[in-house]
Each structure stands twice: as C-alpha cells, then as structure tokens.
Amino acid sequence: MKLDPGFIWTAFIQLLSALPTTLLITVVSVFFGFIIGTIVALIRIYRVPVLHYVASAYVTFIRGTPMLMHLLLIYFGLPAILDAIAVSAGWSFRSASIPMIDFAFLSFSITAGSYLSEVVRSGILAVNRGQIEAAYAVGMTTPQALRRIVLPQALAVSLPNLSNTLIGMLHGSTLAFTVSVVEINAKAQIVATTNWKFFESYIAAALLFWGVTILIEKLTGLLEKRINVYNRGGVL
C-alpha cells in the first residue's frame, strides 16, 4: 500500500464541513448533560426521598452500559413510544418527522449526564462543609449557599474532569453516524469512497480530532490559570 499525503490534505479540507456538526453534538450533549448531572448530583447528595434511588439507578445503568447502546435504545425505542402515544391521542404527529440528529442530542445528553453527575458530586463534596455552615450562619438558604459559595468552588475543582468529559463526548460523537448523522467520522467514510483511500481519510479525521482536543486542553489550561489567580486573591 502506498500512502498518498496529498489526499490526506484533500480529505482534511473536505472534513472541515462536518466539523460544525461534530462540535454541535458535543456542546449540546455536554451542556444538557451538565444540567442533568447537577440535578442528579444534588438529589444524591441531599438524599431526596424516592428520587435518590431513581438517580442512583440512572447513574449505575448508564455508566454500566455502552454509549452506543444508549443511542440505539433511544433511536429504536423512542419513536415507537411516541407513535403509540400519538395514535392513542389522535394526533397527526409521527416520529419520522424528528431529525436524526435530535436522537443523538438526547442520547448523548443522557450519557453525559450520568458521568457529569459524578464529576459534579465529587466537586461539591470537595468543598469544605464549614463554608456551607458559615453561609447558614449569615442567613443564607441552601439554594443561595449552593449558588453563591458551593457550586462556583465545585466547578473550579471539577474543571479537569469536566474537560475530560468534554473530550470524551467529542470522540463519542463519532457514534452518531449509526443513525445517519454526517459528522467527521461519517464524512471520512464518504470522502474515502471516492477512490477507496480509507487510510488517508481516517488519518485526516484523526488529525482533525487531535487538533480540536488540543484546543480544548489549551482553553481549559487558560481557564484554570484564571481561576487559580482568583483563588489566590488576584484580579481577573
């Protein structure tokens, strides 16, 4: 097999058109996953009756099963449920009208939520309990103490793990091609079929993912430095 460096560059340029889709899937899933994860973490920390067991089961099941399985369960199961509800209610809605990428958004958000719940929970537990008690002493409610004191510090502590989750979801976005979403991995296959140069096409895809990963690491490093300056009493 002879490597074609020229086609690697050609494929790289063509793959850039799929980059926005990959980034959109990653950002949306991490954003909503963070919201889900924060809610689940708080439910588990404060042991909310009944919901505590549901939250624990959710985290255990999602973390114990593959990401691809979550996507396939959503892709095949959700339309059947929605169509059954629509038929019984007499609605004209059908699941076929749902864009394929929405299944990826939902599935990956659920997946990210389980992992981020552990990240957020460990960050909250890392904050000194005395600070919460001090907040109560000055008249703050629990929501106020969480919003003003606990969560900002927990976010700072959790930043490296949040970065790892973001990178993991970026790489996991390649699974979206199984539901016909054209992200970087799917685009690499399409580009390669023009002349069957799959090796070069996948090298280009790997370089693109590597570049985005390095960018995330650099941005996280800069954010950590700013947070450390703030924690030392510096000026942002």
Rank of each mutant, 00 (worst) to 15 (best):
A206M: 07
L159N: 15
P143E: 14
N128H: 14
W91F: 13
K225S: 13
A137R: 08
A18V: 01
S122V: 02
A86Y: 05
A188V: 01
I149T: 10
N231Y: 09
V235Q: 08
H171K: 14
M67H: 14
Y58E: 06
R129G: 13
A80V: 04
E224F: 03
I8H: 15
Q131P: 09
M67T: 07
G77M: 04
T194N: 10
L170Q: 00
A154K: 04
Y115L: 07
V48P: 07
Q189C: 05
Q153W: 06
V235F: 11
I25V: 07
K187Q: 11
V40M: 10
T21A: 10
N164K: 07
L23R: 00
K197L: 15
N128P: 05
I184T: 00
P79C: 09
V28G: 13
Y75Q: 11
I36A: 13
I13H: 11
Q144I: 02
Q14E: 14
Y230E: 05
T10S: 12
R94C: 04
P49T: 07
L236G: 12
A135C: 14
V50W: 13
H52D: 10
A186H: 01
A18Q: 02
V28I: 10
I132G: 12
A134V: 02
A154C: 06
H52F: 09
I216M: 11
R63L: 13
R44M: 13
Y230N: 14
G33C: 12
T142Y: 14
L3N: 07
L73I: 03
V59S: 14
S88A: 15
V182W: 01
L166T: 06
L223D: 02
S107R: 03
P99I: 00
K187E: 01
E133G: 12
T26H: 06
L170N: 00
V157E: 13
A204R: 00
I214N: 10
S158C: 11
A89S: 10
F31A: 13
L208A: 03
L78Q: 02
I74M: 07
I43D: 08
R44W: 09
I110L: 15
M69H: 06
G221Q: 14
A204K: 01
T220H: 13
